[in-house]
């Protein structure tokens, strides 16, 4: 991983962790392309290499991808946000309620949902920056709180459905050749990329992640910056909630349960250090893609189809991949220790 946020020099690029991850992704893709079945049980062509399959992968990875994007700046500051999955659920419910029970139009309800997401993130931000509480515990609390509110609003039973086709278009149709939600995902990804790699704000996030006290002594507005990433995280979770609702055509209180774990996995797999400071949005996107391709690809392997275990296999492999990535990240340190020992002996 490079320590600079200006990316320059071919040698530099080749040695980057992201390049390695990209290679893994390509190998993974080729593997499924070669070994995956080309027809499903009804004899319909479902080859892994088809454009449809790629779009399908994109469609299904949008929500977790968004949460992973939201978490990247958070983890860069050495923080964590466990509440994103719950906030996604709460926002989905709020949206459904505002639209159906509140009688608002879809755009107004969506706008209010986005505001609610930012407010939810703002709650985290306030507790973390004003009271200086550890993010892990604060967001563990709001993880419970947001999900609880979603259950309380729906009485644990109500499901909002029958959204108009114009809204479902966002989650289920294509626009200009791409799945519609990609047109939301890509700008968000570009914006987060620019924030992290292209702006002074992103630079200060790294500084805070490396050393919050050092950043304060350098005159950086540490509290404001940290607050920003949590508010942003809440806002993006709300965007994900809208896409989720549109894709499934329904809003339930359990929407997005467990998503935070997949998102964190994607971020860490993408090379962002859980200790803060180091990491890249490109890595996160590759991490999301690696997980999504794995999940989708496994479903095409004959042996997995026979066992009916795509979900489980992809989960296990993702976990193993995460451990592997972690071990890999400390490998240089271990090797240099060993080498020093050998030289001494």
């Amino acid at each position: 991983m490079s320590t600079t946020d200006h990316q320059s020099g071919w040698k530099n690029i080749l040695l980057r962790y992201e390049t390695l991850l990209l290679a893994v992704l390509v190998v993974e893709w080729l593997f499924f392309y070669h070994y995956g079945t080309t027809t499903n049980r009804r004899g319909v062509f479902v080859g892994f290499g088809t454009l449809d399959r790629q779009f399908d992968i994109l469609r299904h990875s949008c929500e977790i991808g968004l949460l992973a994007l939201a978490l990247t700046p958070v983890i860069l500051t050495a923080g964590i946000d466990l509440s994103v999955g719950s906030l996604l659920g709460l926002c989905a419910i709020l949206f459904g309620k505002l639209w159906r029970d509140g009688g608002l139009t879809i755009p107004v309800a969506a706008a209010l949902t986005l505001v609610a997401g930012a407010l939810g993130g703002g709650l985290n931000a306030g507790l973390i920056t004003v009271l200086r509480l550890p993010p892990l515990i604060v967001t563990l609390g709001t993880y419970s709180l947001f999900r609880g509110l979603a259950e309380a609003i729906t009485h644990g039973a109500v499901t909002y459905t029958d959204f108009p086709a114009s809204f479902l278009f966002l989650g289920q149709e294509r626009w200009l050749g791409l799945p519609t939600q990609a047109w939301l995902f890509l700008p968000v990804a570009a914006a987060v990329w620019l924030l992290v790699h292209g702006t002074a704000t992103g630079r200060s996030l790294r500084a805070i992640g490396f050393s919050p006290e050092g950043a304060r002594y350098a005159g950086l507005p540490v509290e404001r910056r940290v607050a920003l990433v949590y508010v942003l995280s809440g806002f993006i979770a709300a965007v994900a909630a809208l896409i989720y609702t549109a894709r499934l055509g329904q809003a339930k209180a359990d929407a997005g349960t467990g998503y935070e774990l997949f998102a964190i996995t994607a971020v860490v797999l993408g090379g962002t250090s859980i200790f803060g400071g180091r990491g890249s949005v490109t890595g996160t996107l590759l991490g999301v893609a690696a997980i999504a391709v794995l999940k989708s690809g496994l479903a095409t392997l004959p042996v997995v189809i026979r066992l009916n275990a795509a979900e489980e296999m992809s989960g296990m492999l993702t976990g193993a991949l995460l451990l592997l990535a972690l071990t890999g990240s400390i490998l240089p340190k271990i090797l240099s220790t060993l080498r020093a020992r050998r030289q001494a002996g």
């Binding site: 996995t265 066992l307 296999m313 989960g315 976990g319 451990l323």
Partner: peptide
């Protein structure tokens, strides 16, 4: 986090 997912999914499998 990783072992949690591995164990849970392994059990499901």
């Amino acid at each position: 986090l990783a072992t949690m997912v591995i164990l849970r999914q392994g059990l499901n499998l």
